[in-house]
Amino acid sequence: MAQAELKKRLRSDYKFFLEYRTRWSDNDMYDHMNNSIYYFLFDSLVNSYLIQHCSLHPPTSSQVGLVVYSHCNYFAPLAFPAVVDLALRVNKLGRSSVTYEIGVFEQGREEVCAVGQFVHVFVERQTMKPGAKGMGESMREGLERIKAAGEDDKAKL
């Protein structure tokens, strides 16, 4: 997707939200949140959703999600002491994979500061390969609830 379109993202484009209070240590020497922190937040947001809404229990789940792709587009800097709203949606849902989109918003502002994406492939813990039936049923049902309308159809064009 083009950066110009991503920059137009609104809170209403997302279905799950998590608040994050930045820490002093999140800032880098340029006095803004370091890019590695964004990826930390993406991972925390996605796993919070999976645990709360998809029956994931990381220590004992038979399936695990491996991140096979990630990227981020940055539009505006964030810095401590900002409070950030992390927003999540699913753009594409495959048999064993899911493409997430994450919007990063500073509380009190409508403009998106960053839009990230990452892809999980769910594999069997024992073999580290996708299972014959793909991801588990409760995982799929939970992910369907935050799927953006029509996104799979757009991806096929």
Score class of each variant (00 low, 15 high):
M1G: 12
Q3G: 08
A4E: 15
R9L: 04
R11I: 13
R11L: 15
K15D: 01
L18H: 13
L18Q: 15
E19W: 11
W24F: 15
S25R: 11
N27S: 13
D31W: 11
D31V: 00
H32V: 00
N34F: 08
N35I: 08
Y38E: 04
Y38Q: 05
L41Y: 12
F42T: 00
D43I: 00
N47E: 12
H53G: 03
C54M: 02
H57M: 09
P58M: 06
V64T: 12
V64E: 10
L66E: 07
V67K: 02
V68G: 00
Y69M: 07
H71C: 09
C72V: 01
Y74Q: 02
L78C: 11
L78W: 09
P81N: 09
A82W: 00
L86S: 10
A87P: 08
N91E: 08
K92H: 14
L93G: 02
S96I: 01
S96R: 01
V98K: 03
V98A: 02
V104T: 06
E111W: 00
A114I: 02
V115P: 02
G116F: 02
F118A: 04
H120C: 01
E124D: 13
R125M: 08
Q126S: 13
T127A: 11
M128R: 11
K133E: 15
G134T: 02
G134H: 06
G136N: 09
E137R: 10
S138M: 14
R140Y: 05
R140E: 09
E141P: 09
L143V: 04
K147H: 10
K147C: 08
K147D: 00
A148G: 11
A149D: 14
G150A: 12
G150M: 07
E151D: 05
A155G: 00
A155R: 11
K156R: 15
L157T: 04
L157F: 11
